[in-house]
Structure formats: C-alpha cells, structure tokens
Amino acid sequence: MKASRAIGWILLIGAAALLPILFKGAYVHHVLVMCLIFGFSALGLNLIFGFAGQAAFGLPAFFALGGYISALLSIRLGLPFWVALPSTMVIAAMFGFLIGYPCLHLRGIYFGITTMAFAQILYYIASNWISLTRGPMGLVGVPVPRIHLGSFDYEFETGFKYYYLVLAAIVVTVWLFSRLMKTPLGRAFVAIRENEDLASSIGIHPFWIKMIAFMLACTITAIGGSFYAHFSRFMSPNEFQWYYIGLTFIMVITGGMGTVMGPVIGAVIFTVLPEVFRAIEQYRNILTGTLLILVVIFFPEGIMGLVNRRLERKKAVSSQPPGRGGEVDPV
C-alpha cells in the first residue's frame, strides 16, 4: 500500500510537470498556472469546509486579501516576492484570527453569513481606501518573482517558468496538508465536523480547534492570492466578487469535500472549463451555474469521493470500517 501510494504521487507530480511541455503556448501556460493558483483557494476552503465542516462563505475573499497584502508589501515597501509571500501568510493568519474570533462564536448558517459580511467589508475597504489600494483602479506593476544572487539572475516572468514555481509550492502544501490530517489536530477537525457537541464532551475545545482550522484555511487561500498578484502583476477589488465564492465552492464539491487531492482536481476542472466555454462567452455563467446545481444535487461526494468509495468497497474485507471520504485515506 505504502509503496503504491508513493508511486502514485510520483506519477501524478510527473504528469503535472509534463503538462506545460506537452501543451505549448503562452495562453495555455497561463491557464495551467491559474489552475494551480485556484488550487490553493480550493485547498483552503476544503480545510475549513470539507474537513472541519464550517461553511465559511467569506473565505474566498482571502484570496483577494492575500493578493492585496502581497502586492502592497512589494510595491509600497519594495519587498521581494520571497519575503512578501511568507509575510502575506502571517498577516493573512492574523486577519483570520481577527475575523474568525467574532464569527466562530456563531454556528452553521450564521457563521456562513457573517464571514460573508466580513468579505464584503474587505471589498469596500479595497475599493475605497484610494490612497492605499488605488480603489477600483487597482494596483499596477506588482513585481515578478526573481532570484538574484551575485551574477545569478533568474526571473519567473513567463507562464512556463511560473508554473513550476507554483507547482513546487502546491506539492509542498498538499504534502504538509496530508500529514496534518493524520495528526490528532487533523482528527479533531473531522470530529468537530461530525458532531461538535460530542467532540467537546471528549475534551476537544471546539472554538480553538475551529480557530486553528480557519486561520490555516485563510493562510492557504492567501498563498494562492499572493501567487496570483505576482503572476497577473495586477490587483483590483474585482477579485472580491461573490462569483469567486461560488467558483471555489464548486471546485471543492466537484473534486470531493474532505479529500486531500479532490479540491485541486476540482480547481483544474473549473479553471479549464470556463476557458473552454470562453468560445461561447454569453453562455459561460449559465453553464457554470447549471453545473453547480447539478453537481450539488446529483454528485455530492465529488470525484475523489466516488473514487474512494470504490476503493473502499474493494478492500471491504480488510478490518477497516468504511468511513467517510477523508477520514480513512485522504488521497
């Protein structure tokens, strides 16, 4: 099992690494990079929503927030990307705490609405604090990541180069993520999803566990935003649109809530599909909306959910009781 899993991982990463070589062209590379960037959004949402069971509707706003933080740090303070990215993660986690603190006292539907209210406030700040964010005009000239050591000078200015940068980052993130889910903390997330009251009765402190999950989710989402800002080299309040909320949720659900790889696959599908639909621009949102409805109604487990269930059926003879997607085998 262990060996086949490792082989699976290597195959997957290898295939991902081959994609930009197989499919050429700056535009295709652009789409490939966006797949991975949205992968971070989906991973973040999956952590708080798929694993910890908290429908944080406002979370996708952290994508834009991360982009803004990273863009501002590098434009206003002149920080290089390699400093801006980790700083963005820390600052996003802090924002996560500030927003999570009031929200996480609420449960279910109210938690969801409240995070959305905060997302909307972030949008208003980005659109109106002209002296800082330039409002709807957006921040122009976000620098490209660059390695400059003595005579060695390398810029990630093409989609091709950028793809491998983001791929490396997402592989590390997914790996850390799957490790985390096997720790007691990761199991506590799932326990809260399954039954918050029961979890607290066996000594798990739901508020702080949820807080950790929320802050982590904010951080992961913000990484995607940071990569986005330095890739598109531009940030505007547009990225706060509620459209991205729907898009990120559909990615997570289609891929499979509470699985590690599912959201990334969902992100790939729903970044590529709208581009394919671009030929029929007028009907793009209609198709995306219809898919969202169909997936939620008929396909709630998502791709990885189905795959996992089939695998579980095969090894039903083994001692493990059949569990829900993410609990047993996250991949």
Partner: peptide, 27 residues
C-alpha cells in the same frame, strides 16, 4: 490507490487535450 491517481491524471489530461483542441480551432 495508484489506479485512482492514474484515473485522476487521465481526467486532467483529457481536459488539457480539449483545451488544446479549442486552441487549434482558434488558430
């Protein structure tokens, strides 16, 4: 498990090819 991953990879590839196809039509 490996099979699952291969399936997933194939799904991704299929989309990639579709994308490539659309692009060729646009040429």
């Amino acid at each position: 498990m490996a099979k699952a991953i291969v399936q997933a990879v194939l799904a991704v590839m299929a989309f990639g090819i579709q994308l490539g196809g659309v692009q060729a039509a646009d040429a």
